[in-house]
Every structure is written in C-alpha cells, then in structure tokens.
Design a protein around this nucleic acid. Sequence first.
DNA 1: CTCCCGGTGA
DNA 2: TCACCTGGAG
Length: 227
Amino acid sequence: MKQGRHRISLSDLPGLMEVYSSLRERFGHRDWWPGDTPFEIIVGAILTQNTAWKNVEKAIANLKREKVLSVAAMRRIPQDHLAELIRSSGYFNQKAIKLKAFISFLDEHYSGSIAKMAKAPLETLRHHLLEVKGIGPETADSILLYALNKPIFVIDAYTKRLLQRHHYFDKEPTYHEAQEFFERNLPANLDLFNDYHAQIVAVGHHYCKPKPRCEGCPLEHLPHRSE
DNA sequence: CTCCCGGTGA
DNA sequence: TCACCTGGAG
C-alpha cells in the first residue's frame, strides 16, 4: 500500500476501469437484475428498498402467481391485497402505496405505457421519477438503467462505502458526488454501467460489508482502510 | 435524525 | 438472539 507522510491522493489510486477489471476478473460478468419485463424490474426496484433480494423474490413470485405483475393488473388490485402479496419484502404497506404511486405516475405522464415512458429523454424521466413518492435517487436510477436501458450510473450504500474505504473520497460521498465521479471517469457505456454496479454489489456483499472482510477481496491489493 | 418492516443467516 | 439487507419520507 502506497503510503508516506502525505495523504493518499487520487493520482496514487488505480483508475475506475482498473478497479472494474479486478472485480470482473473475480466475479465474472454478472447477469444482473433478472426480470422478464421492464415492469417486473421496476417492481423489483421498489420492493428491494432496504431489503435483501431473497425476500423480494418471494414477493415477485406471489405477484406472478396471482397474475398481478402487469400495469393493468396492478392498477386494478386493491392496495391492501397488493400489500399482502408483497409482505415478505418488508415495509409492505408502504411499498404497496409506492407501487400504486408508480402506476398513477405512469398513467398521468405516459398513458400507462412503459414503452412510451422508455422513449423519453433520460434527464426528463429522472426528474419525473423523483417526483413520485417512494422513488428516490437509487430507485430512479435503477429503473432508468436496468428497466429502461438509459446510461446512468447507479449508486448505493456499497458504492459510497467502497469509494471512501479506498480513498477516492475522504469521507462518505453524497449520492450525487459518487455518481458524478463514476460518470466523469468512465465512458457512458450501457453494459459497463450495468455490470459495474453489479460487481460493486458483489464485492460489497462478500467483502466490503459494514464490518469489512478484506482477506481474499479482489481489491485487497489496492490502498484501503480496513475499518 | 428516526421511523417504516419482514426474512435470512451468523 | 442479532446485524444486515441491491432506501426513502418526515
């Protein structure tokens, strides 16, 4: 680890593309965010808020079994019934409201059509999505990238932690700071943005946890704090 | 900052 | 038992 009297500066650190290569070499290309339709991915993005994906899978399965995983069906189903189906994802009452809020948003702005929505420009879409109650920056960007194939870099808790622990930031960056950092230092490539976020989630899940487990981490060789 | 809330794995 | 989970609102 490169150290001296001086604080580690950006120029001492590997570029983001090298970081990506190290992760990718370890984890392989991730088949991130499986989903049969864009709508299923959007629903997953809302349900997975502060919730382990495992618990979301059950909820999605319930929605499929009850044939509620379409815009029309979700518009029709009563909110309390919807809440029961997604119980396993936690915060089920709030999330039922959020799903309904998204449907209303879709109806108002895009005549209830995901396809029409997908044609809107990224910035317009992001601005509109953030107006929806229950959709914050991470959920909005996940929808944009994974459901609508817009080239935007998704930031999550793992990402901010990684940037701080590996000295790209002194303190934990804000969402916008982290996003700007990635987008300024990487080509705006859809598959790269897609897979990079997936790689970060993988390293965050296995190594860069709240309590770091640096042994064997694919990024162990680059400067880091193990706190 | 606190609250929302269920499941999972250590 | 308990921390954590592919956050967001008030």
